[in-house]
Amino acid sequence: MGLLVICRHGESEWNLLGKWTGWTDVGLTEKGWADSVRMGSLIKNIRFDEAYTSALKRTHQTLDALLEGCGMGSLPTTQAAELNERDYGDLTGKNKWQVKDEIGEKAFNGIRRGWDYPVPGGETLKDVYARVVPYFEREILPKLQAGENILLVAHGNSIRALIKHLDQIPESEMEHVEMSFGQSLLYTFEAGNNLPTKKEILSVNIDPVNA
């Protein structure tokens, strides 16, 4: 059996400011690093063969913090733009809560949590799914089926897209799917199975973040 452990990056500089971040390459805050070290302590008994991150440094820094918490020095790591956060287009850099006041709660929730709600110049969650899932099936799934343990560090929306696939969640229910800070998802895969046979959730209590 292979194990896929999925972690969201810790609090970033723009999470702290409440900004739409997307593809902007900002780093972690001190809190984000410390929270990620604590998350790493939850998975310290797992022997990982390899790690995957997005191309954005907040996932690279989170991986380093997780490994510190695990007591591991390093792991063979692949950085993949396919795992990047959703591109928020024209909203990038704007304050989320100011945008909510401007456009109203319904449109705001559609942008943040909807499946195919458009953003000018950006991606929908459906677009993110179209790049995340094929990459997972091509690059990561065969290793899990071969019995490897993989640590994947990505973003709220790229993880939500992968959860839709792994948990077989209908499009109509995606607005209720969250990937919280401080949470790790553990999926067990068996040879010959394209979908996991078991799921476990581990979490640490952290102060709320402007996700």
Rank of each mutant, 00 (worst) to 15 (best):
L28K: 01
L28C: 07
T29C: 14
T29Q: 14
E30V: 12
G32T: 01
A34P: 05
S36T: 03
R38H: 06
M39V: 13
M39F: 02
L42A: 12
L42P: 14
K44R: 14
N45F: 06
N45Y: 12
N45T: 13
N45D: 15
I46D: 09
R47M: 11
F48L: 06
F48Y: 10
D49R: 00
D49T: 00
E50Q: 11
A51T: 02
Y52C: 01
S54W: 00
S54P: 08
A55F: 04
L56F: 01
L56C: 05
T59W: 00
H60M: 05
D64V: 03
D64S: 10
A65H: 10
L66V: 15
L67Y: 11
L67P: 04
L67W: 11
E68L: 09
G69P: 11
G69D: 09
G69E: 03
C70T: 13
G71D: 08
M72P: 09
G73E: 12
S74L: 01
P76H: 04
T77G: 01
T77Q: 08
T77D: 08
T77R: 12
T77A: 11
T78E: 01
Q79W: 00
A81C: 03
E82Y: 11
L83K: 00
D87R: 02
G89W: 03
G89V: 12
G89E: 09
D90C: 08
D90L: 09
D90M: 13
L91W: 08
T92P: 08
K94S: 07
K94H: 13
K96E: 10
Q98D: 14
V99A: 07
K100F: 11
E102S: 09
E102K: 12
E102I: 12
I103R: 03
G104V: 06
K106V: 04
K106Q: 07
A107R: 13
F108Q: 02
F108S: 04
F108E: 07
N109E: 08
G110L: 03
R113W: 05
G114F: 12
W115I: 06
W115S: 02
Y117I: 06
Y117R: 05
Y117H: 10
G121N: 14
G122C: 03
L125K: 04
K126S: 06
K126L: 12
K126T: 05
D127R: 04
A130M: 10
A130S: 15
A130C: 13
R131T: 09
V132S: 04
V132N: 05
V132A: 10
P134I: 14
P134H: 13
P134E: 10
